[in-house]
Design a protein around this nucleic acid. Sequence first.
DNA 1: AGGGTATATACCCGATTGGATATATACAGG
DNA 2: CCTGTATATATCCAATCGGGTATATACCCT
Lengths: 114, 114
Amino acid sequence: MDQLDATFAALADPTRRAILARLIQGEASVMELAEPFAMSQPSISKHLKVLENAGLISRGRDAQRRPCRLEAKPLAEANDWLERYRKIWEGNFQRLDALLGAMKAEKAPDSTDQ
Amino acid sequence: MDQLDATFAALADPTRRAILARLIQGEASVMELAEPFAMSQPSISKHLKVLENAGLISRGRDAQRRPCRLEAKPLAEANDWLERYRKIWEGNFQRLDALLGAMKAEKAPDSTDQ
DNA sequence: AGGGTATATACCCGATTGGATATATACAGG
DNA sequence: CCTGTATATATCCAATCGGGTATATACCCT
């Protein structure tokens, strides 16, 4: 599966998005991540595996715990993909310039609007 | 299904992303959209239905044709969701830069699949 | 070694997905 | 009305998904 496929597929589930949202606050164990959900621990582990396979999280080792943390890169790729469309659909060139600037440290002149 | 669920799920398929990419150039009929793919017409119609149900495209009527065009709103929502994370990771990178001074191993591949 | 805790793996199951083919519908033009 | 064209719908099928329970593994502590 393509990276973008895996990223968007992982983001298509509300449980997984909630897990990512929780991880904004910092690392968390599986138990901690499972707590808000009416769902079994293995199901959460499965969601975490999907996120990990998509590269959206990575995991450490702390005794029996396998703390999860956010990984930015696949999110950045998904964001880049969406930014392209946002630029076209909304005519928002500021964001595109910011994106191109971040990616290539170079401005992308484009005078053709709409 | 939640709007974000539907949007991300629709974007998780490379055929559907390619269809959206094609629609950047303007409206297109089902036949025109199907042409680049080694796939039956009904399969393309099914993909279009997924995109339409997610609100990512809308359809008109031109004789027998049902031209498709891009719709911005759901994309904007998905983009907003990702933007939140972009801000976080940019913040993290700033902190990281502050700590490590110079750490540059970023590649910037422009790998838009279509 | 044995017990407790945290997490992963192995199946099971029903629903959904993404493809196919065959058929139905909608419309244009002679 | 009939034909051709564009598109949608109806099944079918294998694969994947998202949940469950039961069990295994990994690690800490006494």
